[in-house]
Design a protein around this nucleic acid. Sequence first.
DNA 1: AATGAATGAGAATTCATTCAT
DNA 2: AATGAATGAATTCTCATTCAT
Lengths: 190, 190, 190, 190
Amino acid sequence: MARPKSEDKYNALLAATITVCSELGLEAPTSKIARTAGVAEGTLFTYFKTKDELLNHLYLELKKEMGQVMLFNYPRTLTLHKRMYFVWSKYINWGAHNPDKRKVMGQLSVSDRITAESRAAGRVIFSEAAVLLDECLKNSKIQNSSCAFISAMMLAMADTTIDFIIREPVEAEHYCNAGFDAFWRVLAND
Amino acid sequence: MARPKSEDKYNALLAATITVCSELGLEAPTSKIARTAGVAEGTLFTYFKTKDELLNHLYLELKKEMGQVMLFNYPRTLTLHKRMYFVWSKYINWGAHNPDKRKVMGQLSVSDRITAESRAAGRVIFSEAAVLLDECLKNSKIQNSSCAFISAMMLAMADTTIDFIIREPVEAEHYCNAGFDAFWRVLAND
Amino acid sequence: MARPKSEDKYNALLAATITVCSELGLEAPTSKIARTAGVAEGTLFTYFKTKDELLNHLYLELKKEMGQVMLFNYPRTLTLHKRMYFVWSKYINWGAHNPDKRKVMGQLSVSDRITAESRAAGRVIFSEAAVLLDECLKNSKIQNSSCAFISAMMLAMADTTIDFIIREPVEAEHYCNAGFDAFWRVLAND
Amino acid sequence: MARPKSEDKYNALLAATITVCSELGLEAPTSKIARTAGVAEGTLFTYFKTKDELLNHLYLELKKEMGQVMLFNYPRTLTLHKRMYFVWSKYINWGAHNPDKRKVMGQLSVSDRITAESRAAGRVIFSEAAVLLDECLKNSKIQNSSCAFISAMMLAMADTTIDFIIREPVEAEHYCNAGFDAFWRVLAND
DNA sequence: AATGAATGAGAATTCATTCAT
DNA sequence: AATGAATGAATTCTCATTCAT
């Protein structure tokens, strides 16, 4: 191989996309992304055939990162409540500390540029977490709604929580707990 | 000259924006919007100075419509639970039956083209509903969290509910109720 | 109509394409063509959707021009020999006096950018001349080969003749006659 | 370093250029040519300094091949008519059986990328054949036109003939003979 | 006011060529 | 010598906006 494709550049391009798109939206020019990544305009296209491919890769990378954050060091042996809180707080923290990634993720999620395949793959990445939640719920008395619905609710509530934390960072802990309590009440019907 | 001459054309342009942008995203060309509205390319710019102005107006119109839907015929005298369910179901129904508007609204909400002023104005429009919610909550034992936080949770949960209804329309009623029950549990602490 | 599309600009663009492409080949940039035509870069694309469309239109315009030149004032009543010479000399003269058009036509003829439709249409334009030739031949003793073959031979011989005239303009008349004599011998078997 | 190291690669590159350019025209990317030749993108440029050099070399190689085909086994002792027919049929056959080479040659011939030097060299290559023709003509009563003119006519007529053969391969022999008869009539004035 | 042609500043790519490996 | 990643100028085409009619 002449010069192997550099992992560094690949990552720099994804990072630059986050930086630039969080400021300018997904329509940010590829030229600016390349410049931010410190590579030539054309180089972007040796790593990603098209801008859409770049965006779809970024979508999956972010999904993966989020999945890993939520599952890393997951305390399998604790109570349902504690395990749930673990996942919740990891997600909240990631979102609160990575506002750029979160913003871009929000735009990618509603964009037409993300293909059905990418969305499916993204769901697969999260299915681990979903399975986890599934098990939690199966082993509990909770069974009022579909699992997917509960998962989606959890994400929506967590996102709302993050929004408030970003707006009022000093209240981070308060919102994190209040949000989780609310979610727990959603689960815990009797 | 917010609305020169023809109210019809103003509305046709907003409607066309919804149609076109729900399909092509916010980057849909103004020429296509104008054509869909049945006016000339240049005419769009006598109604809206720029494309961003068009988008911001649309944002506010949609916010207003949603607010009106939720508050129209609001049953002031019923129980808190019933009043809440009223608002909830109105919102759910609007979203489920106006997927285009909802899709565009989702993109506008995360877009950089919507100014801080528009967002503030949007909140004002909803503040009516918020006030309502506020009163509800004040007069109840519920006081664990800020009112804005609860409102936001409600919207997030409602949006999630609508997503599921759009995917499985036959289960509309089930999801509408299950979602509301979940939200009610969020409110009803102790 | 706001501003009608200008015939002048349309023609200026075709003329500019001839000028620029005769110098730079068909890959000449549209920006240079537009500049030469005295219009903005974008304007080219209001007259021709794509560069290929421009090229195909040019192809047909040139075919048409050539056809008209060859048939204008055609002397129906003269002898076969004289009518043939008329057509021949018109074609020769057009080519010798329009080297740019001829050069571009040569490139268009072998280019993949000219569609099958354009080629067919081009043939239709010439079919008038072909019909003419056809009649000539039918009414004569000549019948050794297909008419299309004879026509093609005539064009090829004429093109060769033009090449020599362009290289040695003072010998124009000589080559024109020598070429025609040669062609006449092709026709007049036995 | 016209041909560094591997004659194979040099030839593979020329062959690939024929294949690729017959399909995509002379603007075919060098990367595709290299890939088709089975070498790396950069390697092309160790064999040819620039793309234009590659194209000019190809032009000359094809000219040479055509010249060789026409002169190989040339029957010096036969009659003028038979020798002429020999050359004619060789050329016709080469063209009819090498449509890709012929197509590319057609594009090279009208391209600005072929330098005056290459064209001159091409003529030199053919001058052998021309000399031959010259001798033929000198020794005959034929002298009405310049020899170059006759040669050019012959080529033009042969090319036209090949066109028809490619379109109607079953009529190959018919066209080959009809074309030659026509050419012979061009020569044989009395 | 309405029209739609005209504008020209970008936009995403492409590609011949260079150069590190 | 061979490789293929890196480069950045150049290209076609788009599109918000202006402006003559």
